[in-house]
């Protein structure tokens, strides 16, 4: 642990004491976060047990656990959850394959590698909603470049109930594969060179070297990338919301948005928000555990 000068020393007695400074530096931020994150959540926890509608002035009734029971019995919400689950699987595995694949290809001396990597990283820095918007242009059934380039005729990517979710996932893969690539590259470059030399002296096959040397050493960082992307994909709102209104492609965040701000069912929406929140906090917990592990290395 970091220790500071002992309290008796001359230096520590000048000006404010270290303890004052520590409190001054740490407490306001923590308090700020409690006021603007924890307090609102407690507020909505209260609403989740009521039939409150933010759009009406009608009396608010306490309904106990009814909102939670209704949600768990609502097939539309179950469909949203299963859509979201499928979306997470498709999108994160796509990002993993493309991102890790790209990292393997890039993990060698390439002229202009820095520029190339930066260009490849550009998509993940862009605004998801704007990305969703311009992919709409690309996906357009009649004059979009995608159908033309792939010779797909008039495929209606975003209005076809079966395709819409995949169309969104493809956009998400385009946007976030660079993230997996970035982390994978860091993992790959940290593998000690002498391990490869030893493997080649032992005449180990490339495949064997990959599975026995590369993969185990890169695995921890890949895991961080995958957990983070899983959490983010689970929360996806902007891209999907702006790209498609297909009910079959409705993710849980979009459902939540509609319940809260289109139908104004504030009480039930707060209950659903809590269910989502608990799921996200579980993933966050796992994520932070692995992050801290990576830090210790």
């Amino acid at each position: 642990m970091m220790t500071t000068l002992s309290p008796q020393s001359r230096a520590a007695t000048r000006g404010w004491s270290d303890i004052t400074i520590r409190n001054l530096f740490v407490i306001p931020t923590v308090a700020f976060l409690i006021i603007f994150n924890v307090f609102p959540l407690l507020y909505s926890l209260g609403f989740s047990f009521t039939d409150f509608r933010a759009s009406s002035k009608a009396a608010v009734n306490f309904v106990g656990l009814k909102n939670y029971a209704d949600i768990l019995a609502d097939p539309v919400i179950w469909r949203s959850f299963s859509t979201t689950l499928w979306y997470v699987i498709v999108s994160v595995s796509g990002q993993f394959v493309v991102g890790f694949g790209l990292a393997l290809l890039l993990n060698r001396p390439i002229p202009g590698k820095g520029l190339l990597t930066t260009l490849l990283l550009l998509p993940m820095m862009l605004s998801p909603v704007v990305v969703g918007l311009f992919w709409k242009l690309i996906y357009d059934p009649s004059w979009g470049i995608l159908n033309y380039a792939l010779g797909l005729g008039k495929t209606a990517w975003l209005t076809d109930a079966n395709l819409a979710l995949y169309a969104v996932a493809i956009t998400d893969i385009w946007m976030w594969s660079p993230f997996v690539m970035l982390l994978s590259l860091a993992g790959l470059s940290a593998v000690p060179k002498h391990l490869y030399e030893a493997a080649s002296i032992d005449r180990a096959s490339k495949l064997y070297t990959f599975f026995r040397v590369t993969l185990p050493l890169v695995a921890p960082i890949l895991l961080i990338a995958v957990i983070f992307r899983t959490m983010e994909a689970f929360k996806t709102f902007d891209i999907a919301f702006v790209m498609t209104g297909q009910p079959q492609a409705e993710l849980i965040s979009s459902r939540l948005y509609k319940m809260a701000f289109a139908q104004w069912q504030t009480g039930p929406a707060s209950a659903l928000a809590y269910i989502v929140l608990i799921m996200v906090l579980c993933i966050t917990n796992i994520y932070v555990k692995y992050l801290n592990k990576a830090k210790e290395r």
């Binding site: 959540l41 709102f237 809260a260 928000a273 996200v280 906090l281 801290n292």
Partner: peptide, 29 residues
């Protein structure tokens, strides 16, 4: 630089606020 009581928990709390889904926070906000 300083010893903060429950540092790991506080840091987890701080990061977890970042992970909250925006829509979830937006309803009460």
């Amino acid at each position: 630089r300083f010893r903060v009581k429950g540092e790991a928990d506080l840091l987890f709390f701080i990061l977890s606020t970042r992970m909250l889904p925006p829509i979830v926070v937006a309803i009460p906000m």
